[in-house]
Structures are given as C-alpha cells and as structure tokens.
Computed example of a mutant assay.
Amino acid sequence: MGKYQRNSGYKMSRKERPGRDRQNPWGNSKPNNGGRQGGNGGGHNGGGEPPDLDDVLRKAQEGLKDIMPGGFSGAPLFLIAIIGVLALWLASGIYFVQPGEYAVVQKFGAWSRTQSEPGPGYHFPAPIETATIVNVEEIRKMNIGFQEAFSRSGQSGRRDIAEESLMLTSDRNIVDLDLVIQWNIKSAEDYLFEIRDQENTIKKVAESAIREVVGQTDMFPIITTARSSVADAAKRIIQENLDQYKSGVNITHVLIERAEVHPDVQNAFQDVQSAKQDAEDVQNRADAYREDILPKARGQAIQKLQEAEAYKQSIVARANGDAERFKSVYEAYLSGKDVTKERIFIETMENVLRNADKIILDSKSTGGAVPYLPLEATSSKSNKR
C-alpha cells in the first residue's frame, strides 16, 4: 500500500521535504562548529571532520530514489554498472597500429587525422570518432580471366572465366588470356574516401586497359614474344587511370600467366600461320636473291662506266695527238716541201711493208744468181694471215 501511494500519490518536492538543505546536494543540514554553512556542498568547516562515506552513499541513494520513478533499490550496483559501461565506452577508442599499417581517424564521418607511426592510439569513441586500420605495405593480388580454386584434397586448380579472358586482337583473332595484378596502397585517405568498392573498381580498370592493349596488338606476338611489352603497356594505362580517380592505389606488377589461341579457332589459326610462314619463306628467298644479284649488277655497271670513260679519254687523247702531229707535219711541209714529201713517202711505205714478207737481193754479192720466188708458199702464208 505504501509503495502504491509513493508511485501514484503526490510527491513532495525537495524544498518541502524536511531535513534537506538546498545548497547541499547530499541533504546535510547539520550546522558547523562556527555557525556558518560550508560553501563546498559537503558541509566542511575549517576545523571539522569530513562526512562519513556511508552517510554520503546513503543520502545519494535516497536522492536517486526521488529521481527514479517508483523508487529505486540497489543504487550502488546501478552506479557501478553505469561506471562500467562508461569505462567500456571510453576504452573502445583505444586502437593499435602495427608496422606497415595506417590508422585513419574520422570525426563525425569526416577525415580528422592519420596515424602512420606504429603503436597504440586513441580516438573519441563512436559515434564521435572512428578509426579504420589500413595495411599500406601488403601486396594484394587480383586475377583476371580465371579464378583459383582448391579441391577437398587441398590441391589447387583454376577455373576459367570466359567473359574476362577472351579478347579480340588487332588482326581480328580471339586470344584466351589470364592476367595477374599485384598492387598496394600508397594513400590510405584516397583509398578510403575517393573511390567506392575499391577492388571492383581496380578490376574494371584493369580489364579495360588490357583489352585496349590487346586490341592494338596482333595475336602472334601476344602468345609468343611480346607478353612483357603488353603487360608493361597495360600496367602504365591502369596506373594512369587510377591516378585520375585519385584512388590511392599503386600497381606494382602486371603478369600475363597464360596467352593461348581459343580452341574454337585453333585450326583456322594454324592454317593462317602456315600460310604466313610460306609467304615469309618465299620473301626470304627473294630477298636473298636480290642481295646476291644487286651487288653484282652494280659492280658490272660501275665497270662499264669506267671502261667507257677510259675509252673516251683514250680516243680524245689520240685525236688530240693526231691533230698536233698533223699541225707539226704541215708546218714542216711549209718550210721544206720536197723533204717533207720524201719523209711522208718513206713513213707510209714503212707502215705498208711492215707486215709483208720481203726478200732483198744484192746484185753485187750474188754474182748473177737467178732469184727463185716460191709463189705457192708465199700465197699460203698470205691466206693464213
């Protein structure tokens, strides 16, 4: 009955309750030794003793009963629970940063600060502040074109993802390509706040970049010797696009693990490659023949030109000499015509008789011998000539 009346009846205010001091929250109405009431709320005087702790707790419990509806019992346990919850709430702001990690602290959702030094740190508990630990040195791995899987026995395998691995080359062939991308975080703030769904964004950017590079390259170099150049070009494009997004991501390595012809076009590709090989063989033979015949032709042409130049010079020199000789003979003829005529006759006869068979007989020494001329032998020699 008393409890019901306390809950539903009229409650006496603090001013109306006897024994309550308005200036003392603990309701201490005892006068001090000097007749003055202390101003510290505890009823302390200059030389008096401090109040009893039990009395203080009892009066605090009574005050809480007045505040709580329906009264309250077990106030010390309630205070302990409140203090414990408050302590746990304050302790939730403690965090630890490991080497290679950054702690990004947000205040009411906005960036406040970043702790890069390893060790403990503290932020105001939620919802005031929150801390996100980001490992910036960890090398993360992303697969494009396949997915790694493990069997029940623990053996690793891979499952091909056709919509990611099949790509069209510049010569209109289809290549099946598996790509591995390794990356880490270079800016924790940009990584958390500038892009959403970070890994999916990186994957979409990487797929777009590799398809762009493959679409500008023939298939044969991709599956043979140009894998590294294709991977380097894709890495450059991926990094440029991510930097434009301010993603805070650093691409460390791009590796083409597998590049093959798609099975559906394998036979056609082999036929095309055989035809290209035959064409290259014919072209190589033609180049070899050209390299062999052109130097010879150039040498012969140079030789002909040199011979013609020498012939020209000899003819011109001979003509000049004949002209000079004629001039000298003419001048000699003008000075002595008879002598010149005789000399010309003798020189002409020398030229005529130089290659003729001659028999000279001295009439004084022969003593009347009859000359014998073998006409048949002479005629045969003339015919041989």
Rank of each mutant, 00 (worst) to 15 (best):
T132H: 03
A332R: 08
L294T: 15
G35C: 02
Y330G: 03
K358S: 10
D52N: 14
Y122I: 02
K203M: 07
V254K: 01
I144M: 12
D197P: 02
H123N: 13
G48A: 05
V339K: 14
Q313H: 10
I237L: 06
Q277G: 08
I144K: 00
Y311A: 11
V254S: 05
P25Q: 10
D54Y: 05
I223C: 04
R196L: 08
G9V: 09
L305C: 06
A319D: 08
R159S: 03
R196Q: 09
P125A: 03
Y191M: 00
V175A: 05
V214I: 15
N40L: 10
P50E: 06
P374R: 08
K235M: 06
G35A: 01
V316Y: 01
R17G: 07
K235D: 05
V105I: 14
N45V: 06
W26D: 09
T169H: 11
N284T: 00
Q216A: 13
N143R: 11
S13C: 01
L242D: 00
A268S: 09
A209C: 07
D21C: 12
D278H: 10
K59H: 10
A259W: 05
H262G: 04
L88G: 05
V352Y: 13
K15Y: 14
N173R: 15
R158N: 06
V175K: 03
N40F: 08
S365M: 13
I238K: 00
G336L: 00
S8L: 12
W111T: 02
D264F: 02
K384S: 12
E199G: 03
L90K: 13
Q147A: 14
G336S: 14
A288F: 04
N40W: 06
V134G: 01
V104F: 04
R14M: 09
S247A: 15
G145A: 07
D218P: 07
I302N: 06
K364C: 01
Q98E: 15
P31C: 07
S328D: 11
V85G: 01
A356R: 12
E291M: 11
E194F: 12
M142S: 05
N32K: 07
M219G: 15
G321A: 12
K364D: 07
T201C: 04
H253N: 14
E260W: 04
E138T: 03
D338V: 08
F108N: 07
K3R: 12
D54L: 07
L177V: 04
F72D: 01
V230H: 09
I82E: 13
E291I: 01
D218N: 04
N24R: 06
Y372A: 13
R325L: 10
I185K: 06
N28V: 04
R354N: 12
A356N: 10
E376S: 04
M12S: 11
P263N: 01
R158E: 10
S156C: 03
G248C: 11
P295A: 05
A131F: 04
S379I: 12
I82W: 07
V282E: 10
E199Y: 07
Q182M: 00
Q300I: 07
N267S: 11
I174W: 10
Q5F: 13
K203T: 01
S8N: 15
V105N: 10
V213W: 05
L353E: 05
P18W: 00
I346R: 15
Y95W: 09
D243E: 12
V175D: 00
V105G: 11
W183H: 13
E257Y: 06
G39R: 14
R6W: 09
F220M: 15
A209S: 05
